Simulated assay, not measured.
Amino acid sequence: MNASYDHEHALREEDVAMVNDHVAHIERTRSSKQPKIGDRVVYVSTYGDWYGNALIEKFEDDGACSLCLVPYVPFIWKSPLGIGCSVSGGPFTSVQRTELRFAGWTEASYKDWGHCGACSNGSVTFKARVAQWAYREPNPIYGVELTTRTWRRLYISKRVLPDSPYLYHGDGFALRDDAEFERFVQDFEGRVFPGSRENQFVVWCYRDVLQNLSQAEWDTLKVPVSSRRLYNREYPVKVVKNHATHERISYYVRPDFNIERS
């Protein structure tokens, strides 16, 4: 975790002692009854955005927890009730402490300046065991099942563009017509919702996974063969759907480009 630090400043016993002292203090001040600064939160928004590592960075005057939903590793220091955090990242939001539900214990990363002080690559990163909490915003638009933790969410617009053969556009791909759109929804177990503007759709669907296999592994996979465009040409694939992880997996044998060029 500290390769750059060790290379530039050399990790010393005093750095190890500092880390051990921080870890002991952090873990000693954690609670399953009350959220503490530095704890982590699994946060789900109304729109199904899943944040599995949100950070309680401070408490507001009204007692609400200020959360950084996607934090970088925060700098920490000791405080009478635990630790203080200096965190960058985002976005930020706030939740009342009473609305957080204890979800267990997790390991999280923190850092502090090492023996060299505040300088380039001068922070020492370490992990400590802290409480993990859970919060879901009320009134989920797409229901409680559909979140970005295991589902893919696409915003797709249906519109005719000049000199374009495609009718559907969005999120890095395009579809030619209604038939292609319906086939895509069926292939990826999609669920279609109206978007926020005219002729826009929100499609929740299985993730698209490519997985290469050896020829022997490919031969033993007893599923029908179809085709897919890979490396700018059509290749045979065998498609398997994992309904537990919401993945549509296309298995293929990776070509040997050296042999093909020869």
Rank of each mutant, 00 (worst) to 15 (best):
N2F: 06
Y5T: 02
Y5P: 04
E8N: 03
E8K: 01
H9Y: 05
A10K: 00
E14V: 13
D15L: 07
V19P: 02
N20P: 08
H25L: 04
H25D: 04
H25K: 02
R30H: 05
S32N: 10
K33V: 09
K33H: 00
P35N: 07
K36M: 10
D39I: 01
Y43D: 06
V44T: 04
T46V: 13
D49V: 14
W50P: 07
Y51F: 02
N53Q: 13
N53S: 10
E57Q: 13
F59G: 05
E60L: 07
D61Y: 06
D62W: 05
A64E: 03
L67P: 11
V73N: 06
V73I: 07
P74Q: 07
F75W: 11
L81V: 14
G84N: 08
V87F: 09
P91E: 08
V95E: 10
V95P: 13
Q96V: 08
L100C: 09
R101C: 08
R101K: 15
A108I: 09
A108S: 14
G114Q: 09
H115F: 03
C116E: 05
G117T: 00
C119F: 09
C119L: 02
S120M: 09
S123L: 12
A128T: 04
A128L: 07
V130T: 10
W133G: 03
Y135W: 09
E137S: 14
P138D: 10
I141N: 10
I141G: 11
G143K: 09
E145T: 00
L146A: 04
T148S: 02
R149M: 12
R149T: 12
T150V: 13
R153K: 00
L154D: 02
S157V: 14
K158M: 15
V160A: 09
P165V: 13
Y168D: 10
Y168T: 15
A174R: 02
A179I: 15
A179Y: 15
E189Y: 12
V192Q: 05
P194A: 07
G195K: 12
S196M: 14
Q200R: 12
Y206V: 08
Y206I: 01
V209D: 07
L210K: 05
N212D: 06
L213D: 02
L213Q: 01
S214T: 03
Q215V: 09
Q215H: 03
W218V: 06
W218S: 01
T220W: 06
L221P: 02
K222N: 11
K222E: 00
V223M: 04
Y235S: 00
Y235G: 00
K238H: 02
N242M: 11
H243G: 01
A244F: 11
T245G: 05
E247V: 03
N258Y: 04
R261C: 13
S262D: 06
